[in-house]
Amino acid sequence: MRNDYLDFEEPIAALEKKIQDLQSSKESDKNNLSEEISKLNNSIIKLTEQIYNNLDIWQCVQVARHPQRPHLLDFVEKICSNFDELHGDRHYGDDRALLGGLATIGDHRLVLIGHEKGRTTEDKINRNFGMSQPEGYRKAARLMKLAERFSLPVVTLVDTPGAYPGIDSEERGQSEAIANNLGLMSSLKTPILVNIIGEGGSGGALAIAVGDHVTMMEYATYSVASPEACASIVWRDVEKASEAAEAMQMNAESILKLNLIDEVIDEPLGGAHRNPDQAALLLKKSIIKNLENLKSQSISALLDTRYKRLMSYGNK
């Protein structure tokens, strides 16, 4: 049961409250209630469809950031038949915002890499709210090379507000860590499947998002900067975040139209947080389908196509 409603979901919350009130009413009245409850449930479905079919981009940002949206570890639990997390960058530390390991999805053994924002307050702090430090990107690079050596495909699940803006990150070469991954992924000799599952924030997202096939979940977002950062850079006013979100066209539908991703993965009615199991199933199906396709191609053909696609971006 959900307990967090976004402001544009208030009408849905009101109907759900009504159902709750009815259900908690006296035993003797309950006979006449089932019909009314099913009516209300139908109204909720219709209302949700109506709201979610007309989300503006700022509302989409809020869904992508929904506190109950499934994160990396939720998906791992639901779609991987096994997952062994592998820790550390072998140089300095083990980033807790960017995780990776050996996984099996369907019949596919693979290296899974992704951001984890954390769920509880303590967990969120421990994981830097999904904002990786250089060690995270370097760990990802290490695991990608491992994948290459053992001919395992790389699957990434991207969900980050951006790279961590800290003094220590700068001291340890945040820029270099990201830049290095971009070069590495452009020529890694194994298939790379990228899925933007929540927030695709800036270079922190791109550092694990260069690949052969890029999908976005329906209410995920992907942009050059967070709407707040863009607003403060361009408008010089962080309050203009919603305008910035619109201007950057950071939702999956717009990005697909611009030909910058390959596929949008449907989410359950009302967003992934409404029905995480179904969301996971849809993601899993897409991953399996895409892996089969990518694995059927020769590595040299994949690399050639990957490079040509990169070169085509913004070349008109």
Binding site: L182, G183, S186, L206, S223, Y307, L310
Partner: peptide, 13 residues
């Protein structure tokens, strides 16, 4: 926006 972000990958490649 994203087209600019992708230039990072393009130039690195």
């Amino acid at each position: 926006s994203l087209i600019s972000l992708y230039q990072m990958a393009k130039t690195s490649a």
